[in-house]
Design a protein around this nucleic acid. Sequence first.
DNA 1: CTTGACCTTCCAGTGCGGTGGAAGGTCAAG
DNA 2: CTTGACCTTCCACCGCACTGGAAGGTCAAG
Lengths: 129, 129
Amino acid sequence: MRIGELAQASGTTTKTLRYYEQAGLLPAPERTITGYRDYEPATLQRLNFIRRGQAAGLTLAQIREVLHVRDAGGAPCHHVRELLDSRVHQLDRQIAHLQALRETVTELRDAAAEPDPGACDPTAVCRYL
Amino acid sequence: MRIGELAQASGTTTKTLRYYEQAGLLPAPERTITGYRDYEPATLQRLNFIRRGQAAGLTLAQIREVLHVRDAGGAPCHHVRELLDSRVHQLDRQIAHLQALRETVTELRDAAAEPDPGACDPTAVCRYL
DNA sequence: CTTGACCTTCCAGTGCGGTGGAAGGTCAAG
DNA sequence: CTTGACCTTCCACCGCACTGGAAGGTCAAG
């Protein structure tokens, strides 16, 4: 299949597919006599995998590592589990951080809800922040 | 005060201070005869405000707007309240999104905790993601 | 034979908040 | 007078995941 076809089938763009190739996420496909990329249908599975990885918040670099393990003939299960595990911990930290921030910002906003411009010191810019 | 002094007093770098000036967050300071930047001490308050804004997750562009309101002689209380309010809503959305993602990723990780490489289809790369 | 959709490569830019480094001027201490 | 810390401008680069556009080749339909 040609690149436009694959792009449509996978819900992405030709630009992105060429970028993935250059970034080592997709292997360089066969070419037609005239130089057009000619993808195997299985590439669609690979792109779906990439999308699932992205949906889980993995970086393309992490996804690429998994793909390379698979391409080298290995079973990346263990590697994937580790990635997911560290991702869960990262999410826990992010969530905790955002929740604490939400507390702080909410307090600031409530304090600013009934402003008293007269009490402000212009050199401090705004006492509500 | 010179730029290095201000950088140390504010806990940032000379690079960042010049960047803030170029970005419109700091006004161009006086210069000594030899061209050195000569900051007023009040600039420290301004930098503290910028840091508080950043700590609340505001972008430099948003902080700049507040500063410009203040520089124009206005009281930015109302503007600040709106910013903080929209920031709270944004945080709510981010937290909800990350929590849902955490659920999904946790499930994936648990499924991958006892892997069965034999059941995998290499063309799908990894069935645990 | 032309039109228009598709493909190719290559280079450059996006947003965000800086950071790095080169080439050169200034200042205080010794 | 020299040394070393500090300052100046300017231009370029970081990560991340693309995106835009120019200049040109290919293909099928009409």
